[in-house]
């Protein structure tokens, strides 16, 4: 893993990431994948030769640029999976990170896996995942009878799968779920190595927390612009202290979350998962309220398609619907209580 980039390096990177995401506007998910892959953005975290092997902090400006433009693409899912794919499924890594095929991921579900006749047989239903009708590959958690939690890489293009559209929250990235009935998964697409799973989980939670933040930030920016421009009762809305304080509180919520994201980015490998769980639990608890407040600031306009605030709120709510603050906090509580009960280091 390379070193944490400087602020100047990140700024440079942000400019090219913004340019690349801008160029994806209006493209189909497959065309966007090719564009992002050609720019090297999908493989920026994966080790060489599959990717650029950059520090995870480089993902931040890319996620920011994509969230602000509401990119209809499973970017976080791809970035989070990239190192796992490179280690466990190199040929899929090559296809996905170059942008020739699109990968999406579910975070939850109730899929069981069991060996039968040289294949892993899957049964059950996945949790919701974005870009459900446009992806070639699905990375989904499964529960193996003896090995415990694992991941399966499922070929969505293969015959016999029917993705069920789910929910209408995220208009930019339509979601769905997949039901398995005795689906035979080639053994090479079953991943149960603990270190890989834990590293993937840490990356996924950290980058998802980042994505939630960027969506909330975009919604907050819209609210700031709106209250600065609109007048009511003969005054600019921004002059009302009640509104100024709500906006300041929202900004503090993001600033607090930034501390946890930075902490997770700086964490050593053995502390990465705990730090990412904490960052995600905070983001999942705080960002929906920020986007809701931003919508409220627009008054009646906030409830219409005349302003795009609701898209960010939908995107955030869809994300936390697949892994909510309460579930994330359960894990945090477990660690916090254990740590409080452990003796202090001498």
């Amino acid at each position: 893993m390379n070193e944490h980039p400087s602020a100047a390096e990140l700024q440079d990177f942000a400019t090219s990431a913004a340019r690349a995401c801008e160029a994806c506007q209006g493209l189909s998910p497959k065309a966007a994948a090719q564009r992002l892959g050609a720019d090297g953005l999908l493989g920026l975290l994966a080790p060489e030769p599959h990717g650029l092997g950059l520090h995870r902090a480089f993902a931040r400006p890319v996620i920011a640029a994509a969230a602000a433009r509401r990119l209809g693409f499973p970017l976080v899912e791809t970035l989070a999976a990239s190192s796992l794919l490179a280690a466990a499924a190199p040929s899929i890594a090559e296809a996905v990170l170059s942008g020739h095929e699109v990968l999406t991921a579910a975070r939850a579900g109730s899929v069981s896996a069991a060996w039968a006749d040289g294949a892993m047989v899957l049964n059950g239903i996945t949790g919701e995942f974005p870009m459900a009708l446009d992806a070639h590959w699905l990375l989904t958690p499964v529960m193996h009878g003896t090995a415990g939690p694992a991941l399966a890489i499922v070929d969505l293009a293969a015959v016999g799968h029917e993705v069920e559209p789910r929910g209408e929250l995220d208009i930019d990235r339509p979601r769905g779920a997949l039901r398995f009935t005795d689906h035979r998964l080639p053994p090479s697409r079953f991943i149960d190595q603990g270190e890989l799973l834990s590293a993937h989980r840490a990356d996924d939670l950290l980058l998802s927390a980042n994505d939630l933040h960027e969506c909330a930030r975009s919604a907050l920016d819209l609210a700031l612009a709106h209250v600065s421009a609109r007048s009511q009762f003969g005054r600019k809305l921004v002059s009302f202290q009640a509104l100024r304080h709500d906006l300041a509180r929202a900004r503090m919520g993001l600033e607090n979350g930034e501390r946890l994201i930075e902490q997770a980015l700086a964490a050593s490998p053995d502390a990465a998962l705990a730090a990412a769980e904490l960052a995600y639990a905070h983001a999942a608890a705080v960002t929906p309220g920020i986007a809701e407040m931003a919508l409220q600031m627009h008054g009646g306009m906030g409830f219409t398609w005349d302003v795009p605030t609701h898209f960010y709120l939908r995107r955030i709510r869809a994300q936390v619907a697949s892994l909510g603050a309460a579930e994330a906090r359960d894990r945090v509580a477990e660690r916090a209580i254990a740590q409080a009960l452990a003796p202090l280091p001498a």
Partner: peptide, 10 residues
């Protein structure tokens, strides 16, 4: 209470 303790921990 575990949820609240987790929030305090954060």
């Amino acid at each position: 209470y575990r949820q609240q303790l987790a929030a305090s921990w954060a």
